Amino acid sequence: MTVSPAPQPGLPASAAPTLRPVLPRDIPALAALNDAAAPAVNVLGVDGLAALLPRCDLALVADDGSGTPQGLVLALTPGADYSSENYRWFSEHRPGTLYVDRIVVAPTAHGRGIGRSLHDAVAERARALGLDEVTCEVNLDPPNPQSLAFHRRLGFEQIGEQSTNGGAVRVAMLVRAVAAPDAR
C-alpha cells in the first residue's frame, strides 16, 4: 500500500510524505521515533518493534524521501497473538475492531496531516476487512491532551478508561466508526 496524503495548506506538495509498508531497514529509525515519544507510547527498542511487526495487520511508515521516517502506525486485527492490556480490553469490550496499537509522528512533522493520513489508512484497512470500527487508547495520566484532542477531531469517542502498567498509566479507550465501502 502506498498512499500519498494531500498536501496541507501552506505546505509545498513535496512536504507531504508517502505512506508505505514498514521495511526491515526502517526498524532502527522507527524504534528511535517510537521511543522518543514516550510516555505517550511505551518504549519498544529495536528488538521489541521487530517482534511486534509480524503481529500487525497494518504497519505503515510516513516517508518523505529523506531517509528519516516522519510517522508510524501499527494496527492489529481481532484474534492477534498480542498480550497488550489495552488490546485485551478492546478484544473483550469491543471485539471485531481494528486496533491501533500506536501512531507516532515526528515532532518536526506535526501539523502536516501525517497523523490524519495514517488514521485514514487504518480506516480504509478496517473497511477492506469488513470491520465497522477502529479502536485505540490515549493516555490520560500521564496526560496527553494534544493526542486526545486530535483523536476527538477525527471522530473518536471515549467508551471507557483503564489503568495499566500496575496503575502507573491511565488511558481513555476510544472508538471511531468507519463507513462501509459503499457508504463513502
Score class of each variant (00 low, 15 high):
P107M: 07
S84H: 07
V100L: 08
P145N: 11
A62C: 07
L52N: 03
A121I: 04
L98T: 02
A38P: 03
P54L: 07
A149F: 13
D101C: 07
A149R: 13
G71A: 09
D35A: 12
R55V: 12
H110D: 09
R153M: 13
R116V: 07
I103Y: 06
G155I: 03
W89M: 09
T97Y: 03
S147R: 01
S117L: 03
V61F: 02
P39I: 05
A37I: 05
P24C: 07
E133A: 13
N42P: 10
N139L: 11
P21Q: 11
A29N: 05
E85Q: 13
A59D: 02
G96K: 06
D64Q: 05
D57Y: 05
A123M: 08
L49I: 12
D132L: 15
H119A: 07
P69S: 10
A75S: 14
H93C: 15
A128G: 13
G79M: 08
G155E: 03
E92D: 14
G130L: 13
R102Q: 15
D64V: 01
V134S: 00
V100M: 06
V41P: 00
G115N: 02
L140S: 05
V73L: 10
A31C: 08
L49H: 04
S147I: 03
P143S: 14
Q70H: 10
R88D: 14
A37N: 09
V105P: 00
Y99T: 08
G130T: 12
A37P: 00
A121M: 08
R125C: 06
D57H: 12
L60V: 03
H119W: 11
H151G: 04
A31M: 06
Q146F: 15
L33Q: 01
D132Q: 12
G65I: 07
P54K: 10
D141C: 13
V134T: 02
D47T: 14
H93P: 08
L53W: 03
P39V: 04
D63P: 00
H151W: 07
V43T: 14
A62F: 03
V43N: 11
A36I: 10
R20Q: 09
S147Q: 04
Q146N: 13
T68Q: 15
R153K: 11
A149V: 11
H151V: 08
A126C: 06
T68K: 14
A59W: 00
L140P: 03
C56L: 09
Y99A: 10
A32N: 07
V22K: 00
N86Y: 07
G115H: 01
V22A: 05
N42L: 12
G48S: 06
C136Y: 03
R116G: 09
Y99M: 12
V61I: 05
F150N: 06
T77I: 14
V122H: 00
L148Y: 13
